[in-house]
Simulated assay, not measured.
Amino acid sequence: MCSVTYALCIVLIKQLGADFSLTESAEDEFEISFVCHRPDDLDILQEETEFSKKELQFLYRAFKNECPSGVVTEDVFKLIYSQFFPQGDSSIYAHYLFEAFDTNGNGCLSFKEFVAGLSLILRGSIYDRLNWAFNFYDLDKDGFITREEMMKIMKSIYNLMGKYVYPSIHDDTPREHVENFFQKMDRNHDGLITIEEFMESCQKNIFENLRIFQELH
């Protein structure tokens, strides 16, 4: 899911109008001065995120150009993704992603919420990214991931991809992925995945993949 969310965040940035490479080298290419678009708490956002001041200015200009009101509604959020996935139905996944970004739950995505989420996903530590991913899966925010929640997420991802992907997706494919997910992460087999189980399993997989990569080289 993290890779899917990462890709969709890049899609969102580009659709907002920002040709934003997310690298420090690219930052030097921009000489930006638009005080009228500068949010009052730009300096605070720089301290709270992993973006530079120029990157925040650039993102804010793109954000305001697309959303003059200063907020993104869920309908606009869904529309952005639907334009990039015409063969599938991106609305359900976009709904879950919107709720993950909308941290105060008011139904509108502010610039502060937008860049805070992007910073975690794109430049956060492994712990930050995994914590964000767990909260994304935990749809009812009760501190556990259930099979039902995971199934909803998996179905939304396959709906996003559409019916014409290759190889073709069978009806049982989402359920198979959910069962595989729980076999790896549900250590005590109680049908619930805690944040501790999630973190431990994900980090173990990361280290195992790194070990295999090093052995191959």
Rank of each mutant, 00 (worst) to 15 (best):
L12T: 08
F63S: 06
E47V: 14
S21G: 08
P174G: 02
Y93H: 12
V4S: 06
P167K: 07
I157K: 13
K14M: 01
I206A: 04
I169W: 00
I32D: 06
S168G: 14
L56F: 05
L42A: 07
L16I: 06
S168D: 13
A18L: 11
D19A: 15
E74Q: 15
E99I: 03
A62V: 08
I126M: 09
W132Y: 05
F111C: 04
F51T: 03
P39A: 09
Y96P: 07
D128I: 05
T146C: 02
K14Q: 07
T173I: 05
F181K: 00
G105L: 01
L45P: 03
K53M: 06
C2V: 12
T73M: 06
E99N: 11
Q214V: 10
N131D: 11
I126Q: 08
G124S: 02
I195W: 02
G124Q: 00
S125K: 04
S91A: 15
G191R: 04
G162P: 07
R61T: 09
A62P: 07
F30D: 14
D190Q: 07
D75M: 12
F198E: 03
C36F: 12
F84M: 10
K141T: 00
H189I: 05
H37K: 14
N65Y: 14
I169P: 00
D138M: 00
Q87I: 10
I126D: 07
V72L: 15
T146A: 01
E179S: 08
L56D: 04
D190P: 05
I206R: 02
G105R: 06
T173P: 01
T103S: 13
E74S: 11
D140T: 01
E27C: 14
D19N: 15
N135D: 07
D190W: 04
L192V: 01
D190N: 14
L59Y: 06
N188Q: 04
Q203N: 05
Q46A: 12
D43A: 12
Q46L: 10
R147W: 01
D19W: 11
F84N: 13
H95S: 15
C36S: 15
T194A: 10
G117K: 02
C108N: 13
S25P: 09
F213Q: 09
L22F: 11
I44D: 13
I80L: 14
D186L: 06
H217L: 14
E31T: 11
P174N: 01
W132A: 02
D138F: 02
I169S: 02
L109N: 01
S125H: 01
P174T: 06
F20Q: 01
F111W: 09
A62N: 11
E47L: 15
F213W: 12
S21W: 09
V72W: 05
L12H: 12
M154A: 15
S110D: 09
R129T: 02
F182T: 06
E113V: 01
Y158T: 10
H177W: 03
D128M: 08
N131K: 13
